[in-house]
Design a protein around this nucleic acid. Structure first.
Length: 330
DNA sequence: AACTCCGGCAACCGCTGTTCG
DNA sequence: GCGAACAGCGGTTGCCGGAGT
């Protein structure tokens, strides 16, 4: 559109505003209204460009500006809206009375971005980060989100995530062993050079995870049908849904899994987050079906192995995933 | 005490959309 | 229909103060 920037005019002051300038601007606008921003500086006796005046007024001097720390509700609103709207700061600001788009943008880019990164999210896409280790805290955090929403502080949450990430690292290591080519060719009682007993011991060390209801099969990398015990199925990270676009991705049905291998499938639970911004589980195609269970038929291990049953996995957008996980039956 | 580093935030820059002559 | 003026928006910059060494 070929318009020269208004601030190109020489001699106009830039940089931080002084209290005197603020006072002039406020006085003038309270008396006359801002009218044309371009004309305002001269009329108000300011050596600034109109644009600078407008920004100063809208972002700082407006009487209805709310200063100070963002409340937890405001944080959640920003996160929710940003996951839906993206960087539409003005649109987000319209839902937060007294907050400016600039303030929200700054807050998000400093505080919330850091928190998302700590939790293993990509702060731009709200998707889990794709590198394996970065994904661990995200995956854990997803299932812990309910607690987070229930007044657990970020700090407490971070401490807990760290502990659980250590558990996940061990699980990933086990998965790595199970997936190695050697395991495919190996005898049924030996996996990647480790024995069933060793694998069981490793799994046993992870069993405390069930108490936190953190672990689920999607935290494993790829399907490993019948490679071990009751079978471990996993959802590749690339299929994880985005918060930005509530997904309708498909998971293998319990029937498919029962046919292909030996899974115990439980599918009972509640939605993790009934966010008003997102489709409810009951209205989605992933609504929780009645609890079902398929038989465990792996002839090699069904009677001797610890059995890990499925449990539901919920994403924050309310999507229900019917998926087997490690729920140990004593 | 002096220096460096880093995070937070106000302000600026440049682009886009709208209005108007 | 065209172009200039204007307002708004999102990205970026740079200053400042606090923390760390």
């Amino acid at each position: 559109m070929g318009r020269s920037p208004c601030c190109d005019e020489s001699g106009l002051k830039k940089g931080p505003w002084t209290p005197e300038e603020d006072q002039k601007l406020v006085k003038y606008i309270q008396k006359q209204g801002h009218g044309s921003w371009r004309a305002l500086p001269k009329l108000a006796g300011l050596n600034r460009c109109g644009k600078s005046c407008r920004l100063r007024w809208t972002n700082y001097l407006r009487p209805d500006i709310k200063r100070g720390k963002f409340s937890r509700e405001e944080e959640e609103t920003i996160l929710n809206l940003h996951s839906i709207l993206g960087n539409k700061w003005s649109a987000i600001a319209s839902h937060l009375p007294g907050r400016t788009d600039n303030e929200i943008k700054n807050f998000r880019n400093t505080h919330l971005k850091k928190k998302l990164i700590q939790m293993g999210f990509d702060p731009m896409t709200h998707r889990p980060r794709t590198d394996m280790f970065a994904s661990l805290p995200h995956l854990i955090a997803l299932v812990n989100l309910k607690e987070l929403m229930e007044h657990q502080s970020w700090e407490e949450h971070a401490v807990r995530l760290q502990a659980e990430a250590a558990q996940m690292a061990r699980l990933q290591y086990l998965q790595y062993l199970l997936q190695s080519p050697a395991s495919v060719a190996s005898a049924s009682n030996s996996i990647s050079g480790i024995t069933d007993m060793e694998a069981f011991n490793l799994l046993s060390s992870l069993s405390s995870i069930k108490d936190t209801q953190v672990l689920n099969s999607s935290q494993l990398e790829t399907p490993t049908p019948s490679s071990f015990g009751a079978g471990l199925y996993s959802m590749p990270f690339s299929r994880l849904p985005s918060l930005e676009t509530p997904s309708t991705f498909e998971t293998p049905s319990s029937k498919d899994m029962a046919q292909s291998s030996n899974f115990t499938v439980f599918s009972q639970g509640e939605t993790l987050l009934n966010s008003p911004w997102l489709p409810s589980a009951s209205s989605s195609s992933h609504a929780a079906p009645p609890a079902t269970e398929t038989s465990i038929t792996n002839p090699a291990d069904a009677s001797s192995s610890p059995i890990y049953e499925g449990a539901p996995l919920f994403w924050p957008d309310g999507v229900f995933i019917e998926d087997p996980i490690f729920r140990e039956i004593a």
